[in-house]
Simulated assay, not measured.
Amino acid sequence: MKNPVLHPAASRFYADHGWLKSAQTFSFHGNYDPQRIQFGALRVLNDDTVHGGKGFGRHPHDNMEIISIPLEGTLEHQDSMGNTALIRRGEIQVMSAGTGVYHTEFNKDQDEPVSFLQIWLYPNKLNVEPRYDQVAYASADLHNRFQQILSPDPDDEGVWINQDAWFHLGEFDKGFETSYELKKDGNGLYVFVIEGNIEVDGQLLSARDGYGFWPGSPVSIKAAEKSFLLLMEVPEKW
């Protein structure tokens, strides 16, 4: 069995551009560590905060599955496919960049910051037609359970991507215990704690810690306090 990887919050790369503060779990742009390139198909996990009225100007992507999960504020998206959208907490955005797409992301609010998780996964199909989607979920659906927000199946819950990956969000009361069963044999699980403290198969994790491992059986999860977490099940190879 492959060794697990633990990424404490304080070990992440940090970039402070004034208008943007970014905590990066994996190597990104000028921040590079050959030991922290990816976890399976998971290539980027950035914890970004953008000041009021600021944002990312028009820039390109290709052959990457890009997921945004807002945590606070309102993110405004525009792209070369003709999409214009506002994304808030309680919504998930996906963009399959495929053969190539340009987009912008800005903080819609002039006075308050917007915070969101920016996640990139390698696709299992190259040069697909670019695609955009977003869906909403109810906060109540996360209470003491995992709500699926992403899968490889267009007919399943949440957004879909070109990869054998499943994402779930959950908000758990202190002391609540549950488990997670992998959807596909051989996949790995990367846990990111958004808020709180959690125990995952005996590994204690705090807010903004990340933990990637390759479980062979259902994963046990216990909330040491009120917690909010993201599970990302991803393939090792594709």
Rank of each mutant, 00 (worst) to 15 (best):
K21W: 02
H17A: 12
A15D: 12
R36T: 05
S27P: 07
R12M: 02
L42H: 06
A15L: 10
G55T: 06
D47R: 05
T25F: 02
A23I: 01
G55C: 06
N46S: 08
Y14H: 06
D33E: 13
F56G: 15
H59I: 00
N46F: 02
T25Y: 03
H29W: 04
F56V: 13
Q38D: 07
S27R: 07
L42W: 01
Q38P: 09
A15H: 03
R12Y: 00
R58M: 08
G40N: 07
A10Q: 15
A23Q: 09
T49Y: 00
H51K: 15
R43W: 03
D47K: 05
A9Y: 07
A23W: 05
D47T: 04
A10C: 07
A10W: 10
L42Q: 06
W19G: 00
F26P: 09
A15T: 15
R36D: 03
L45M: 11
D48G: 07
I37C: 10
D33Y: 11
H17I: 04
Y32M: 13
L20V: 07
F26R: 08
D48Y: 00
L45C: 04
F26A: 08
Q38Y: 08
N31S: 14
G30T: 14
A41S: 12
R43P: 12
H17N: 09
K21E: 12
S11C: 07
A23C: 05
Q24T: 05
D47C: 05
K21A: 11
G18D: 09
L42T: 06
G55K: 03
F56K: 08
Y32P: 05
G30E: 14
R36N: 11
D47Y: 09
T25I: 08
F39W: 09
R58N: 14
A15W: 00
R36C: 07
F56A: 13
F26Y: 09
H51W: 00
A23S: 14
S27L: 09
L20D: 05
G18V: 08
K54E: 10
Q24E: 13
H29D: 15
R58T: 10
D33L: 13
A41L: 14
A23R: 11
S11Y: 10
P34T: 12
S22D: 07
L45S: 02
V44M: 06
R12C: 06
A41K: 09
G30Q: 13
H59F: 04
A10P: 11
P34H: 14
F56S: 14
G53R: 11
Q24V: 03
N31L: 10
F13I: 10
N46Q: 06
N46H: 05
R36F: 12
H51S: 15
N31T: 10
N31D: 13
D47S: 05
A15Q: 10
N31A: 15
T49V: 13
Y14T: 12
K54M: 11
R43K: 04
R12K: 08
I37Q: 15
F39Q: 01
Y32F: 15
